[in-house]
Nucleic acid binder design. Structure first.
Lengths: 346, 346
DNA sequence: TTGTAAGCGTTATCAG
DNA sequence: CTGATAACGCTTACAA
């Protein structure tokens, strides 16, 4: 590592102590708000010395002793995806309230990237690591990540997931199966019969659980799926599925694996002259800001709240007691991308 | 700070050295890839010992000596705003390539929050701090932030801004004035005459420069502005402006201060039965993913690239030599929210 | 080529 | 109530 020119010496606790004419120990006790008793007069001398010198305690010096930094690491697939951005915002708000800093790591769903991030975060070490995305159901795909997470935990790093992972881990999430089942039930309830699904990445638990929920709702209603299109969690995947749908046959309604995909789907459908929701209803999942902008019917998943609560538990170190799995409620949000079957556009 | 139970001792360089039967110094030289010569046989012993112990060097121990952590801090207004999320993604990609971690700090445009983040980042200290959002033109509003940034720089922390700030600072950005002027020129070129503007937060340089660019283009064409609506950089601000527009009088076209606002604007207009772009053309600025989803005509601002290049310069410590101001090019992107005057929807 | 040891800034222990 | 000091894990002169 390149050592940059150290133009200015850092003012350290020793400087504060010297100016206040106390020992380093006393200065530390005052500035950390320790419970160790310090005379009021002494305290004031230290505080004013610190202010005069614009003293900022060295996080590194402190961490060397406490073996912990006021850092929370978040491993996302892609921070520019609103799903993760909203989670990250919730985390950082809770972190900031407790004077913690939030580190964002993009892993693009690659286990090797996750692994290297877990290691980097452990090297500080961060107080906690939050896995924002769901895991891969491919056997062994996450083995190394699981092992690294387990080791980090043994060293006192709190680990929390906000979606189902392939290893045991404290988890705050929603019931993806139920969420997608409820959404599909809604589409059935407004008269749709031929309903298609656009899948997310097929190895992800989020995709798998959502597809299963979709199928469950259809089975309840004694319906068979119109078609399950392979897809992905991005706009382009939805658009691609739409094009295949157009050259295939149009269902009454489509459930997409998430909002991004639903947005791409309805965009491409409309571009081809299809009336959404007049001819085809389209629904997404997550209720990210994409859903609002595109006017999508969707299922609200409390992303901000998931992140906020996970981080809150970490900074208060409550995460160790709570239950291993906490489910947050979801809720259908009806907007203008769906309509009763055979209605026309309002 | 609470000291957590240290379930497991951290394996340190001493452990590696012991297992490899070398001194700590030698182990360090091998593992840091120092230029100091080490016998090949010794090197291999150290490497295999490190592997066997699953050694991860302590970032804190290292930072205590080098006075620098492999951390880049990014101060954004709101990471859940795609504008900032796309910048953050660019930064993290460059950071990750160099084995740096990215810290995201949400400041919601509040100088006090920015200040506390700069201090927190300095306390590590981070290698660099990137200000993603533009500054406030209110005199003195950012004085304390400017001072803290200046001090951080004196200690070797690199500081870069991705938008105009009220203090001198290495800056990579686009010409907001020209961007908005060019967009307005485009609307004029397709026949619009009565053109309105929806402002961003009035104290921000980004808002001010864009409004000035808008007025400049109108002046060139000897037009007067239809109306300048107060607004903001969010969806709701655009929607609010639309409602005032409806009870006022409809212009031929509207330029919004950014894409979020433009999305809210066109959403509310359409909800009120107005044909966009048939009756009113709407354009945004930035070309965030919001623009793609909403099908907005806009100006592409290379957000990812700005973040990527800023971070790249930081990790290579090139930021000290380059020019103080670097302008990145912008580009008009035409989508379906604008059309020539008096045309009907395609 | 290897090793010894100083020192980074902080907290915590223990003695006064 | 205050202070001296060990310890944390690492890098890097300097010595051998």
């Amino acid at each position: 590592m390149v050592i940059p020119p150290q133009d200015q010496p850092i003012t350290s606790l020793a400087d504060v102590a010297q100016l206040a004419k106390v020992s380093i120990a006393t200065a530390s006790r005052v500035l950390t708000g320790s419970s160790h008793p310090v005379a009021e007069k002494t305290r004031r001398r230290v505080v004013s010395a610190a202010e005069r010198l614009d003293y900022v305690p060295s996080a590194v010096g402190r961490a060397l002793v406490t073996k912990r930094t006021a850092l929370i690491g978040v491993i996302v697939n892609d921070i520019s995806d609103p799903y993760f951005a909203e989670i990250a915002r919730g985390i950082d708000d809770a972190a900031r309230d407790a004077q913690y800093l939030t580190m964002i790591c993009n892993a693009d769903a690659r286990p090797e990237a996750e692994l290297s991030h877990v290691k980097a975060l452990s090297s500080f070490p961060a107080s906690g690591i939050i896995f924002a995305g769901s895991g891969s159901a491919v056997p062994g795909a996450e083995a190394a990540v699981a092992e690294a997470a387990r080791r980090a935990e043994k060293r006192g790093v709190l680990v929390t997931a906000l979606a189902r992972k392939s290893f045991e881990c404290r988890t705050l999430t929603v019931d993806n199966f139920a969420a997608c089942r409820d959404l599909t039930r809604y589409l059935v309830s407004i008269g749709h019969r031929r309903i298609a699904f656009v899948e997310g990445p097929p190895d992800r638990y989020a995709s798998i659980d959502r597809l299963a929920g979709f199928r469950s709702a259809l089975a309840e209603a004694s319906l068979t799926e119109a078609h399950v299109y392979t897809g992905g969690f991005d706009f382009e995947s939805g658009a691609t599925a739409a094009r295949r749908m157009l050259s295939n046959d149009l269902p009454d309604a489509v459930v997409a694996g998430n909002d991004e995909s639903a947005a791409g789907l309805s965009h491409a459908l409309r571009e081809a002259g299809i009336d959404v929701p007049g001819q085809v209803s389209v629904a997404g999942i997550d209720d990210t800001r994409t859903a609002r902008i595109a006017g999508l019917t969707t299922v609200r998943v409390p992303l901000y709240e998931l992140g906020h609560e996970a981080a809150r538990q970490m900074v208060t170190r409550t995460a160790n007691d709570g239950p291993l799995l906490t489910l947050f409620p979801h809720e259908i949000v009806v907007r203008s991308s769906t309509a009763p079957r055979h209605s026309t556009r309002p």
